[in-house]
């Protein structure tokens, strides 16, 4: 199967005050197109760091990250932003919706940045919100939606422009188990329908069980 994410010898260090923390230590990872992968591990194990590096939100200290055929080391800031805009979708733990925009506008905004026309934006945003079960909630602002509904808007925003990869950082962490299960189901459906690769970090047993492939990370290394 075609590899969409290729990480080779990734190293990443952070300074925590005056103490150096080795977040990732010589990580090698391949993920195939269309996979539904969970990066699991305890807090501080390095899974969010790995996700950020795959998403091009952060840069490696050593090693290389190749996503959808693009070697990040060869891309400048603008090219990386362009890649994120068109080929990667993000779902964050804290939803991170724009509070002044409605559910539909939040979903539309990514397409606006991509230069999609108004009519098409409107049509596609409604369709995707319907698909994640938010019909009749188009005009609600984030503050008028529950946590689960907000995270579904975030998933809709991530998937609306048919990216190659969706990266989700602990997407169910702020949700109760039932809502979390519903969200995972939606993500699985999107994975199957849209053929997008889903990579998410978690330390939730239920989420790990739902994943088709589990990558365990401990102390900045792939455990298994």
């Amino acid at each position: 199967m075609e590899t969409i994410v290729q990480c080779r010898g990734i190293q990443k260090k952070y300074m925590q005050g005056k103490v150096e923390v080795r977040a990732l230590d010589n990580v090698d990872l391949d993920i195939a197109k269309g996979e539904f992968v969970a990066l699991a591990g305890p807090s501080g194990s390095g899974k969010t760091t790995l996700l950020n590096l795959i998403g091009g939100l952060d840069t490696v200290d050593a090693g290389k990250v190749i996503v959808d055929g693009e070697n990040y080391a060869e891309l400048n800031g603008a090219a990386l932003a362009e890649l994120r805009l068109h080929r990667i979708g993000f779902v964050f733990q804290a939803y991170n919706l724009i509070p002044v925009l409605s559910a539909r506008e939040n979903v539309e905004y990514v397409m606006l940045l991509q230069g999609v026309g108004t009519a098409e934006r409107r049509e596609r945003s409604r369709m995707i919100l319907d698909e994640v079960g938010l019909e009749n909630k188009y005009d609600r602002r984030p503050s008028e939606l529950s946590g689960g509904q907000q995270q579904r808007v975030a998933v809709a925003r991530a998937i609306v422009s048919n990216p190659s990869i969706v990266l989700a950082d602990e997407p169910t962490a702020n949700l109760d188990s039932k809502t979390g299960e519903g969200l995972l189901k939606i993500m699985r459906e999107m994975n199957e329908k849209k053929k997008a690769t889903f990579i998410f970090s978690t330390h939730d047993k239920m989420v790990m069980d739902c994943a088709r492939r589990l990558v365990m990370i401990q102390d900045g290394r792939i455990a298994r």
Partner: peptide, 16 residues
């Protein structure tokens, strides 16, 4: 600032 971070993560350019 968090919001601007999100917009950059989504692919918004600094000029925008």
């Amino acid at each position: 600032m968090r919001e601007f971070g999100l917009l950059k993560a989504l692919g918004m350019r600094p000029a925008r």
